[in-house]
Amino acid sequence: MNNCYHLIGIVGDRTCPELAHFIHCRNCPVYSNIGRQLLERPIPENYRREWTELFSQTRAESDTLTNTETLTVVIFRLQREWLALSTGVFQETISPTSIHTLPHRSNHILRGLVNIRGELQLCISLTHLLNLETADTPVAALSPVVYPRMVMVEKAGSVWVFAVDELYGVQRFYQHEIRDNPSVTATNHNFAKGFFYWRGKSLGYLDEELLFTTLDKKVWR
């Protein structure tokens, strides 16, 4: 391949007589022809195989990263249902406190107001929102000490307080562990993204976006 541009051209000693006319090698047809030959040259042996292996490895690494992404949730129980909600929306946990009903406003979902550290917050019944059946018989507990708690959740400035029958705590799951919704009461209203198999139980993974949007729409009806 002619490499005159390296010897007598703009990169070399600049003795090429054509430089007076073309000013620079890139304007010369000889230089353009060299570039064309580079683009049209035969593919080296094993070129396709090497790049195929490289892209397949990159895809495998990407899939592995997605499959090992972890989700951190808070697990709690309402009646007989074990549920999980992203830790990102949980603000604090408190002991049960008095609920002050709102005249002509309180209903099955909106229970009233609670005082948390001097601030009044709206208290709702997540059990009624999810339409869960009441447990008529004692439910086997998983926590060492079981007593009712209240939790405060917040997303995009929307704050709600609700009571739970048992609060297990924080748990991590892998993204690929999420399964399609089973036929359980909590998911009949599409409030769950899916569920996890956890300690031999079906754990409903609640969709916080849908949960907060629905509360904002329904609670004042």
Score class of each variant (00 low, 15 high):
R149K: 15
T72V: 09
I178S: 12
Y168E: 03
L85G: 00
K155L: 15
E166L: 04
A186E: 02
I124W: 00
R49E: 08
H6Y: 15
K193M: 14
M150V: 01
V74I: 14
S125F: 04
T187K: 01
T93Y: 04
L19G: 05
S125Y: 00
I124E: 02
W51T: 14
E92N: 14
E133C: 13
R14F: 13
F162S: 08
E209L: 07
E209G: 06
Q57W: 09
G169V: 11
L19N: 12
L19K: 09
T72I: 11
N131H: 12
V219H: 15
E133L: 07
G35K: 12
W198Y: 06
Y168N: 01
L85M: 05
I10D: 10
E81W: 01
Y197F: 12
L210I: 09
I124N: 01
F173P: 02
H21G: 10
V146R: 09
L126M: 08
T64M: 12
L102G: 00
V161T: 08
G200F: 04
A156M: 13
P138H: 10
G194I: 00
I99Q: 04
P96K: 06
L78G: 03
V151A: 08
V184T: 13
E92Y: 10
R111Q: 15
N67Y: 10
S125M: 07
F191H: 01
N115G: 07
L203M: 10
D136T: 15
A140H: 03
Q79Y: 03
R105S: 05
T58N: 12
G9L: 02
I23R: 13
K193E: 07
T134A: 10
V164K: 06
A163K: 08
N131G: 13
Y147E: 14
L39G: 13
F162K: 00
R105E: 09
D180E: 13
R149C: 09
R14H: 06
R49K: 12
L71D: 05
H189S: 12
E177M: 05
I75P: 02
G112W: 02
S106V: 00
L120A: 04
L167W: 04
T137Q: 13
T101Q: 07
E18K: 15
Y205Q: 00
R49V: 14
D216A: 11
D180S: 09
E133A: 11
C16D: 05
F162Y: 03
L71Y: 00
E133S: 12
H100A: 14
N46G: 09
G204I: 00
R111S: 07
L215G: 06
Q91H: 14
S158C: 12
H6P: 03
T64I: 07
V114M: 02
S32P: 06
L129W: 02
S106M: 02
T70D: 10
L71T: 06
Y5G: 02
L54T: 07
D13K: 14
A135G: 01
G200V: 06
E81G: 15
T213W: 12
G9F: 03
L19F: 04
R179T: 03
N188H: 08
V153K: 01
N3E: 13
N33V: 08
A163E: 10
